[in-house]
Design a protein around this nucleic acid. Structure first.
Length: 497
RNA sequence: GGUCUGGUGGCCGAGGGGCUUAGGCACUGGUCUGCAAAACCAGUUACAGCGGUUCGAAUCCGCUCCAGACCUCCA
């Protein structure tokens, strides 16, 4: 894409830092640096995870569409993410490796592959850089050292902790999540006593590991591994600099993960770090957050096959993508079979129209104000990436397509051209919806020939007013998912897998 | 317990002081069709409750009720 394709568009972004929408102003236009927290690869991703990456995919797409040159960094966490308390649990990857009797890197690779497969299925674009935590141990050690040098870290028995209280006094801690350190102190659930930390709020940036740990690296403080929060700070800084434009992730990472990141960045580098913090909201099931522990999460594969107790049937990835885009990324979205079915039909309507658009021809100039309508597509996205509004505007386009096809509306050459371009850009590129063309021939010559024959025979029957035969052909084909549609111009057929 | 978010018509889901017919699905009537399907036209159902501010509130404020998220690992 050329740079500054649409410099006139005023994008507004909701910034979690000050809880309001702000005009998006890149630090160094047309370049934009965007970091999104990726998955911890110790298990298969579920649909809730997909939603977050989908939300940022659309944000990435729209920024690119506007002409920004986006460097999109999304990490893979393959070490340092502990199973429970920030300091006392077992590393998730190590635990899985022990349970499945695999090398930790086998675990990471296995679920990274799964993650990539899922991203592809949902048409989620790959990031510009996908760094791993284990690939940046040196950078993380350097950052720990910087934090110590600046007086915000202290070492105990080969582990290094971040001094939250001291940092808070000098820089303030809790701005992003709206927490005050006194309240946190009162509410901390951590049990004091055996902890090495000076304060329960402190968090590990480097953890000592003895010989029993499979994943460990040498460091100035002995053998160990990096703390979970640290990787994002180290890698975002490495690839995007001390200061960059957008940092995203799931709402559930807001605290403590992102709060710790901010503290680390400021503690190691400089006061300025991220301009816009953005959080994607959760996918819920029956009003509850989808999560493994609740047992209400299902994998994309289960969703597609329908092989899960919560699912009445399977749904295509694009139906699911469309469903998710019908909600705003910052709102929770509730999953239900009814909602999915509604989306399935809605998406089918959109898909049919997109196919029909291909054969529209220009005629007399019509009333439809294509220019204003196109701008409303931009307006929707400019308002903090409001995809549900965009979809509603696009459905006005669907109506136009059908009306033109039905002969009750028309567009001249210029209108039609701008119209088609807009539909293709916003449906295909910005929303990333691959139109599921109902397979109407093309890929199977034999089937086409056979169907041509069947339709011709049925036409003969109809000409003789032999409705019994004509209807029987249609009904029987319907049973094998072949739909017959009689239109003025002739009969067409479609097949759904 | 602390912090925060939300409760919109049969369902999902936007909007967010006066005029959004939001949109999708479902439903009803009509047009087209041999009948269907699709499409088109028309229509129905709404802002949790109680107070307050205002000329005017679904939208702002307060209280009540309900739900959820975070405060422990989670996208």
């Amino acid at each position: 894409m050329d740079k500054n394709r649409y410099p006139e568009q005023k994008l507004q972004v909701y910034n979690c830092l000050n809880r309001q929408k702000e005009v998006f102003q890149a630090l160094n236009p047309p370049y934009v640096g965007m970091y999104v927290c990726g998955p911890t690869v110790y298990s298969n991703v579920h649909l809730g995870n997909v939603r977050t990456f989908l939300s940022f995919d659309v944000i990435y797409r729209y920024l690119t569409f506007l002409g920004y040159k986006v460097r999109y960094v999304r990490n893979i966490t393959d070490v340092g993410h502990l199973t429970d308390d920030a300091d006392d649990g077992e590393d998730k990857i190590s635990k899985k490796a022990r349970l499945e009797n695999l090398e930790p890197m086998e675990v990471a690779q296995k679920y990274t592959n799964d993650f990539h497969d899922v991203m592809r299925i949902f048409d989620i674009l790959p990031p510009s850089i996908e760094p791993t935590a284990t690939g940046h141990i040196i950078e993380q050690i350097e950052m720990v050292q910087k934090i110590i040098n600046n007086g915000y870290g202290y070492e105990v028995n080969g582990s290094v902790y971040f001094d939250v209280k001291k940092f808070n006094e000098e820089h303030g801690y809790g701005d992003l999540s709206g927490r005050k350190i006194d309240e946190l102190m009162n509410n901390t659930r951590a049990l004091d006593g055996q902890s090495e930390k000076r304060d329960p709020l402190d968090f590990a940036i480097w953890k000592n590991a003895d010989d029993s740990h499979i994943m460990r690296w040498p460091s100035p403080w002995g053998q160990g591994f990096p703390g979970w929060h640290l990787e994002c700070s180290a890698m975002s800084t490495k690839y995007l600099g001390d200061q960059f434009d957008i940092h995203g992730g799931g709402m559930d990472l807001k605290f403590p993960h992102h709060e710790c990141e901010i503290a680390q960045n400021k503690g190691a580098n400089s006061e300025a770090s991220v301009t816009y913090w953005m959080h994607g909201n959760m996918l819920t099931v029956n009003g509850r957050k989808m999560s493994k522990s609740e047992g209400n999460g299902f994998t994309p594969e289960e969703l597609i096959t329908g092989n899960h107790k919560l699912l009445d049937k399977g749904y295509s990835p694009m139906t699911v993508r469309f469903f998710m885009l019908q909600g705003h990324y910052a709102s929770t979205l509730d999953f239900s079979n009814e909602a999915l079915q509604a989306s399935e039909r809605g998406f089918k309507k959109l898909s049919n129209a997109m196919v029909a658009m291909g054969s529209l021809t220009a005629g007399a100039a019509g009333d439809f104000d294509v220019v204003a309508w196109r701008q409303r597509c931009f307006d929707a996205m400019n308002d903090d990436f409001n995809t549900p509004i965009l979809i509603s505007v696009l459905f006005e386009g669907v109506k136009q397509i059908n009306s033109i096809a039905a002969g009750t509306a028309s567009m001249d050459e210029a209108q039609l051209e701008a119209f088609k371009t807009t539909m293709n850009e916003f449906v295909g590129f910005v929303l990333g919806l691959k139109i599921e063309e109902e397979a109407a021939g093309g890929d199977n010559d034999l089937l086409d020939s056979v169907m041509d024959l069947v339709i011709a025979l049925r036409a003969d029957a109809k000409a003789e007013k032999n409705w019994g035969i004509a209807d029987k052909i249609r009904d029987e084909l319907n049973k094998i998912n072949v739909q017959i549609k009689d239109a003025k111009e002739g009969t067409t057929w479609t097949h759904e897998a």
